[in-house]
């Protein structure tokens, strides 16, 4: 019953799950001068995709595959040393849960919402949402991998007034890497929770905490 169109609905930037208020760490990277142009954005997105992107995509694929969402939520905590990023993941997970239960209601989503009323990690919720929508583990991984790079790209268009055509071209050039990461994530998910990757990025953890304490910022994370 897999339906490709459901993936378009779920991956659409207009899916009302709160992503628009987050830059995926791009705001502090812009402020530190590490992202100044489209090439920097491409490097940033590639690094984020291969670290937190792969880790999150695998969590989502595992949830879509039917692994225990609470065990995955715990695994996500262990993979997220930054409390600021854990808070963001749970906040976005809660927002996605609301949208998911209105769009593809399922008993599994309801059970996770009841077990984690303050929100489960967003990739876990996304995996369960994909499952409720009739999508597979690799679809869920694709969706998360894409969010990992589309969030910063959209934010950098606003932060640097970067040409939106250039930003979208960056995303287009990343698509082979996105496909590889999604396939890798789905393969790991099939091996079970012990095989899930834990790739991390030091700068993302370091700057997330500092950014969370900025008194004035455009993006929530």
């Amino acid at each position: 019953m897999t339906t490709r169109a459901a993936l378009l609905v779920l991956a659409d930037g207009r899916f009302p799950a709160g992503g628009h208020a987050h830059s995926g760490g791009a705001e502090p990277a812009v402020a530190a001068g590490r992202i100044r142009d489209a090439q920097d954005l491409a490097d940033y997105c590639l690094g984020r995709l291969h670290t937190t992107g792969l880790t999150s995509a695998a969590l989502a694929a595992a949830a879509a595959h039917g692994l225990d969402p609470l065990a995955l939520d715990e695994a996500a905590d262990a993979r997220t040393p930054s409390p600021a990023l854990r808070a963001v993941a749970r906040k976005l997970g809660r927002q996605l849960m609301r949208a998911a239960r209105a769009t593809w209601p399922s008993a599994e989503l309801a059970a996770l919402a009841a077990a984690r009323p303050r929100g489960a990690h967003q990739p876990v919720v996304l995996g369960l949402t994909a499952r409720a929508a009739g999508l597979g583990p690799e679809d869920a991984a694709h969706c998360v991998a894409y969010e990992t790079v589309s969030g910063p790209a959209t934010a950098v268009v606003r932060l640097l007034s970067l040409d939106p055509f250039e930003a979208t071209a960056v995303l287009a050039r990343l698509t082979p890497a996105l496909d590889r990461v999604a396939a890798q994530a789905a393969a790991a998910a099939r091996e079970g929770i012990g095989a899930l990757p834990a790739a991390s990025a030091p700068l993302l953890d370091i700057t997330a905490e500092a950014h969370a304490a900025w008194p004035v910022r455009l993006f929530a994370s």
Binding site: R14, H20, Q95
Partner: peptide, 18 residues
């Protein structure tokens, strides 16, 4: 306070989840 990613109209109309 709800943070809107520079787009309050999105947060009150298109994506009201926050």
């Amino acid at each position: 306070a709800v943070e809107t990613g520079a787009c309050p109209h999105t947060a009150i109309r298109d994506d009201i989840s926050a």
